[in-house]
Structure formats: C-alpha cells, structure tokens
C-alpha cells in the first residue's frame, strides 16, 4: 500500500510512491457528478458550489485548513471541471476558520466555496456539492432544510449524530467527511487511489497568492 500523506505535506514532493488525502475527490457525490459530466447525461458543466461546515471542536490549524481542506476542495473542483484555474479569490474571517472563495477555470466553469469550521460543537458535519450543468444538476443538498440528505440520525442527551452508511462501507461513517475519508482509504487499499503530486503544487501556489 502506498504511503498516505496530507496535501500540505505533498507540496514540492514528486514521485508516485504516495497518495494524498484529497478527500473531496473521493466523495461519492463528487464521483457521481463527475460520471454524469463524462457521460454527458446532464449536459455541459457550468458551475460548482461547495458548502462544507464542521463544529469548532474539529477545526484544523489554519495551515491545514487552507492547504489540506480548501486545497482538497479546489483539487476536486479541478478534477471535475478538467480545466486550468484562471482566478481564485479567498475571503477569510480574521482568526477563525471561516472563508468564502470564488474561482474560475479557463472553460468558464465557476467554483463557489463556503468553508466553515466554526459551527457550535452541537452541530454535525455538513458537506454539500452542487454541480450545475446546462441540462441538469447533481447535488446532495436536500430540497428543504440545512443538514445532509439521507442516512441515519441518532440522538441522545449529549447531542445529535448524522451517520452515513452505504453498501460498501464496513463501518458506518460519522457524517460526510468521515464518509469521504473512508472512500479514500478504500481506494488506497484497492490500489485505485490517485498517486503522486497531481496538481497540488499549482493549487497550493494559487492559495498562497490569494490569501
């Protein structure tokens, strides 16, 4: 099995002996959207919208918030858009892991990102993708409400958990982030994960120029 490293550790590293934990690329909703792009069932991709929120107790150090979490979303967006970035604008709150980001690709696909690691600790993880095509869309955002679409909800006096369970998971995932991580690890185990730097150097450079 290849070595697993975080994206910020992959910056400047080359070779094919490692896999980056670019979790969003392995998010089942992302994979589904990419399949629809490739088979043309939804038409041409126009815009991507990401909403990713976590309670503050899970907040990463700022460097990892930017160069692991944000980078992973930007990588996934590029994976589906299949084009080069022409712009990235990051609008970050001071001293908090909250940011909004806008990006454009050469093929005029846009990316909107809401990344928030400052929710109250009573909130579950939330991760949405909207892929808008000219003849359809793919999303896991429910028509009504704020939380994730389906799965299990379990609650007791200490709080509420939203659990993702699909047909191939051995262990249920505690929310969508864990779900992405499990799918990534499964692909690594099957030797189907993407190896090497991919476009991480360029995206990290883009982030550092934009922040």
């Amino acid at each position: 099995m290849k070595q697993i490293i975080m994206p910020h550790e992959a910056v400047g590293r080359h070779g094919e002996d490692f896999c980056q934990a670019l979790y969003w690329r392995y998010f089942p909703i992302m994979k589904r959207a990419r399949n629809y792009k490739l088979n043309g069932k939804c038409g041409n991709l126009c815009s991507l919208r990401f909403a990713a929120s976590r309670p503050a107790k899970k907040a990463l150090p700022e460097n990892e918030f930017l160069y692991d979490h944000l980078l992973s979303i930007l990588d996934a967006a590029q994976y589906i858009a299949e084009s080069n970035y022409v712009s990235l604008h990051i609008n970050k709150a001071e001293n908090k892991n909250i940011l909004f980001a806008l990006a454009m690709f050469e093929n005029e696909v846009s990316v909107e990102i809401e990344l928030n690691e400052a929710l109250p600790d009573t909130m579950p993880d939330i991760a949405f993708l909207w892929a808008n095509f000219d003849a359809g869309c793919v999303t896991n955002q429910p028509l009504i409400g704020y939380l994730n679409y389906e799965g299990l909800l379990q609650a007791d006096a200490s709080g509420m958990r939203m659990i993702c369970k699909d047909s191939i998971q051995a262990v249920p995932a505690e929310g969508p982030y864990e779900w992405m991580k499990q799918r990534f690890l499964l692909d690594v185990e099957r030797d189907e994960a993407f190896a090497g730097n991919l476009n991480t150097d360029a995206i990290a450079e883009l982030i550092s120029r934009s922040i």
Binding site: C46, H89, A103, S110, E112, F133, D134
Partner: peptide, 29 residues
C-alpha cells in the same frame, strides 16, 4: 464571478456568486 451560462441563448447572465467584506470586516457571500 459569473459562470458560463446554463442558458446560452439568453442575452444576460444566469449565474453569479459574490463575496466580500462588510464595513466591519465580516465576510459575506
């Protein structure tokens, strides 16, 4: 930003996403 139009036959934009700061520095989207 404004993405490529979903409706190519329109004369005007059908998509936009906007961010920035309020006058106290709070980010909005």
């Amino acid at each position: 930003v404004s993405a490529r139009n979903q409706m190519q036959d329109l004369a005007v934009e059908d998509h936009a996403a906007i961010t920035g700061k309020m006058d106290n520095g709070v980010p909005f989207f």
